[in-house]
């Protein structure tokens, strides 16, 4: 029983990070119909920038993450600006463009921070809580809370604000949106930069949990992408649910299948997707891809 709950807690903690990554994927997909394959590497840049401000500039951890969100938000704007001429002309090229950006970001990170990576000390030094023999790291509770807050804020933004609704309109019908006076490019740029900001939030938070290096975006990106698909690609609550589900699934399969855990995780994932191709919260508002 203790193993069960401890595994659950461990899975939820990493799952919260996957959820933040998945939200970025979903947002860009929901508003542009595009899968941003550079997203995992934006997470990595976010982790590096946050850790640099936190460790070298000695900023408080929260401020360091805000700084990272600003920096990666700018990167998001740049990616969108470069890809903009392709919007509604060649979608495949845009996809490949995002892959290219991912490779560039990884190379830039290696140039700036070197290839060796760094360990980030935990900003919450308190000892883990002990609840009936189950140990819960205080820092993980912080991560879970931030992921929940980010989800609520994002859903409110998309449903309650004019800009959010405009982003939705662009995704559903590009020409009609233009006709009613929505600046499509600006809307996409905003979605890209919010997506990148979410990536930085995830990356900054995951730094003290893991080890920051230039290739960390790979596995975080894949797990986050899988989480977005599982929850229903494009759905924000789905991304949260998918992230937590992938985290927990990963944790339990690691416990039961040991060396074969990756295989089992993605087998289960494949079966779920075969049974329910649109994911748990599948709404499929977007059909441009």
């Amino acid at each position: 029983m203790q193993v069960f709950f401890q595994t659950l807690i461990g899975g939820l903690s990493l799952g919260a990070v996957y959820a933040l990554v998945a939200m970025g994927f979903s947002l860009v997909y929901r508003t542009m119909g595009l899968v941003n394959f550079a997203h995992g590497d934006v997470v990595m840049i976010g982790a590096y920038v946050a850790s640099t401000f936190y460790m070298s500039a000695k900023l408080p951890f929260a401020l360091a993450i805000v700084a990272a969100i600003v920096v990666t938000g700018l990167i998001g704007v740049i990616i969108e600006r470069v890809l903009r001429p392709l919007e509604n002309k060649d979608f495949d090229l845009m996809l490949i463009g995002t892959i290219g950006f991912g490779i560039v970001l990884e190379a830039v990170a290696t140039l700036i921070w070197g290839a060796t990576g760094r360990a980030v000390p935990s900003p919450v030094p308190a000892a883990p809580l002990d609840i009936f023999g189950i140990r819960v790291r205080t820092y993980n509770l912080v991560v879970l809370a931030i992921a929940a807050l980010a989800m609520v804020a994002l859903v409110l933004f998309l449903q309650r604000t004019k800009r959010g609704a405009a982003m939705q309109a662009v995704a559903m019908d590009y020409e009609a949106a233009t006709a009613v006076g929505i600046h499509v490019g600006r809307s996409n740029a905003l979605s890209f930069s919010i997506g990148a900001g979410l990536a930085a939030l995830g990356g900054g938070l995951v730094g003290p949990l893991l080890y920051v290096n230039a290739s960390m975006g790979g596995s975080l990106g894949i797990k986050g992408f899988a989480a977005a698909i599982l929850g229903g690609f494009g759905s924000i609550p789905g991304a949260i649910l998918g992230g937590l589900a992938i985290g927990v699934l990963d944790s339990f399969s690691a416990g039961h299948f040991q060396g074969y855990s990756d295989l089992v995780t993605f087998l289960v994932f494949t079966v779920i997707i075969m049974v329910r191709p649109t994911g748990v919260f599948g709404e499929r508002t977007v059909n441009r891809a």
């Binding site: 193993v3 807690i9 990493l14 944790s251 690691a254 855990s261």
Partner: peptide, 20 residues
Amino acid sequence: DQVVTTDQKDFSAALTTIRQ
């Protein structure tokens, strides 16, 4: 005798078994 994968990030299950 716990075996993990090379890119595993969460070791709760294996470590809890060891602790017990």
